[in-house]
Design a protein around this nucleic acid. Sequence first.
DNA 1: CCTACATCCTCTAGTGACTAGAGGATCAAG
DNA 2: CTTGATCCTCTAGTCACTAGAGGATGTAGG
Lengths: 141, 141
Amino acid sequence: MSSSVPIGTVSRETGIKVPTIRYYEEVGLLPSPARTDSNRRSYDAAAVQRLRFIRHARELGFEVEAIRQLLTLSDQPDRSCAEVDGIARSHLKEIDEKIARLTALRQEVQRMVDEGAHGRVAECRVIEVLGDHTACLHDAH
Amino acid sequence: MSSSVPIGTVSRETGIKVPTIRYYEEVGLLPSPARTDSNRRSYDAAAVQRLRFIRHARELGFEVEAIRQLLTLSDQPDRSCAEVDGIARSHLKEIDEKIARLTALRQEVQRMVDEGAHGRVAECRVIEVLGDHTACLHDAH
DNA sequence: CCTACATCCTCTAGTGACTAGAGGATCAAG
DNA sequence: CTTGATCCTCTAGTCACTAGAGGATGTAGG
């Protein structure tokens, strides 16, 4: 079966560069994989999926520490409720804020595309839309 | 009027550290502000708003080059339609993908909070939800 | 079996985007 | 007119990668 692939294949499948995969192992985001007789890393499907998760989470602006916590949720689903709940809730808040800001930005960029199609971009308010509209998300609560 | 504040005040108002503000100036995200007689930077309201935009955009995972482009949209609203439209559209796509992934992640983390409240977190699928569900967003044109 | 070339290994160093600190000038309060 | 906060520039450190040197191992063709 192919549930034991070398690092290059994993790199191609996930879009994460080889040295970066080794880096994630070094900093503890990815468990050290099994090694072949000749000391080469060999990954299973779970590792590939974990890497894909890490990549998307990074692209969404979560920092490594936040990803570590989200992965902890996943690694220990039978963990004490309070702890998991706390971590999950705080990230839920972070995620909601990100979605709200992105939605605001999306709307404004969409407006520009629409107006641009009609011949002229009257005014651009991308700055305003993230600049203060969403600032209240921080203070509100 | 207060439309001329020093860097420390701007830092407090935006939550961006003083050296970072100077860094943004250095790399051209923020125009060099006016200086006082004693060579100190003095910022107007527009600069503060621009910095807030930069901060939020960074938190959302946009890299400096993307932010530079979005700021360009804002700086030159009467620019040639095609160019603005192209930049805007490509970012619209990027934004939509981010929103889709965040929404998927949000749903899963919410589920964990809900189940956690009921006493047990059966399984955690945060990895799966970003790991491949959204992978098709990449390929699906 | 042997060459050739890709892929792997470790290790060191470089990049992008900050962030902290040294050393010194300037301002505002008492 | 001193004291403490804030500013200046400049250099160096951090985080999260990313590239490259130098060498071992694997796979395919002759």
